[in-house]
Design a binder for these strands. Structure first.
Lengths: 207, 207
DNA sequence: GCTGATACTGTTTAGACGAACAGTATGATG
DNA sequence: CATCATACTGTTCGTCTAAACAGTATCAGC
């Protein structure tokens, strides 16, 4: 793949920026206007060269049909937008729409499963699951409504707070267990609401 | 925000799908064609209603200027595309462009820092950093070229393989230490190449 | 059974848009 | 110094496109 000239790179950057901020790629004339060209054909010519060098694709004769094609972007998979909640109140349900605190966006391949409408994320508070290598401050992704299997980690509602616990079965009865010797709890799982099954994790270093 | 009818939802889904797969939103006539409408005005009417209900925005008189505005998508922040390498050979550098094995896409807020051109990701192999709660199979994100501070985790090249170690300073000299009693190594860091400083982590449950 | 919203067909129009053609200027390369 | 690619101006053309107008059919709620 040939290298772009400085001007061509600037045009490509502008297109990319437009797509990011406005969700729409600019027309030839908008490109010309942005760079102060007095003719839309100046932009057309640039696009032709950028396209020839492989950094751009477009559908002929279609308006705003440009597409930036960097090597990385070509590898980019399908994205998932997962709602991030601070704390989940008792009645989490798919129907009752709750206002999320934020949005975690990840590509599907990296988290290893395809999120559904019942997928949500929580920021982990406390070190109750340190034994399963889930740390304070991590973002944990859950699937609501899935049936937990023994050994899986779940988010459960205890004292109006979402808490992480391991789902275990002892003598045929389901329990929830903390993975930290400091919390020797073993709570019968019938008594509380299991909000979701743990699916993925995102951690940022806190420096 | 009012609810959409079934037909309106279908139209909105189609627009969203077009944007995902082709990067471009459809025109009124393309929508009409897709649903078998004989008049582009049928699509126009649907768009008008969807827009009125707040699920869509558009710039008047501009071609393909639709924008899906779900509550989640509004919260979506800036995205970062990070190259994922299998193993990094000795000469990792920003100049020498190396073919990535994949692409990890995350929103900047979730990983807690803004990736640069020197950011890359590795899939963790082995449990040498289990003491710092980094597990086998995790995707670790690194910043190449950053100066490690004592206690930070780094990716180092040992025996032609990228390995995770903690960067420590003992008696004024830098060492690399594994965080697992099974690996009691303490390697003088001058002898090896530090490829990057650990910044973030993505984990998927392996069930 | 009236009314209003939804869900269309069918047609027209003005303007937006990509593409093509005809030139000019500049700078790099050999 | 000739040549070629880049980087434009200026213009025309045909099509694409959003929008507007005039209707029709169906269905739910009252």
């Amino acid at each position: 793949m040939m290298k772009l000239t400085v001007k061509q790179q600037r045009v490509l950057d502008f297109i990319h920026k437009c797509q990011q901020t406005q969700g729409v790629t600019p027309t030839h004339q908008e490109i010309a206007a942005h760079f102060g060209f007095r003719s839309p054909n100046a932009a057309t010519e640039h696009l032709r060269l950028i396209r020839r060098k492989g950094f751009l694709e477009s559908v002929p004769r279609k308006a705003r049909a440009l597409r930036v094609t960097s090597a990385l972007l070509k590898l980019r998979g399908r994205l998932a937008d997962i709602p991030l909640y601070g704390t989940i109140p008792a009645g989490f349900s798919a129907d009752r729409e709750q206002q999320p605190d934020g949005c975690v966006t990840v590509d599907v391949a990296s988290i290893g499963f395809k999120p559904t409408r019942n997928t949500f994320a929580l920021r982990v508070a406390g070190d109750s699951m340190i034994g399963r290598h889930i740390c304070d401050g991590d973002i944990a992704v859950f699937e609501h409504g899935a049936e937990p299997r023994p050994g899986q980690i779940v988010a459960a509602l205890i004292d109006r707070q979402s808490t992480l616990k391991t789902f275990v079965v002892k003598n045929g009865r389901p329990f929830l267990k903390a993975e930290n010797p400091k919390y020797p709890d073993l709570i019968p799982s019938e008594e509380l609401v299991i909000q979701g099954v743990f699916r993925a994790l995102i951690r940022q270093t806190n420096e």
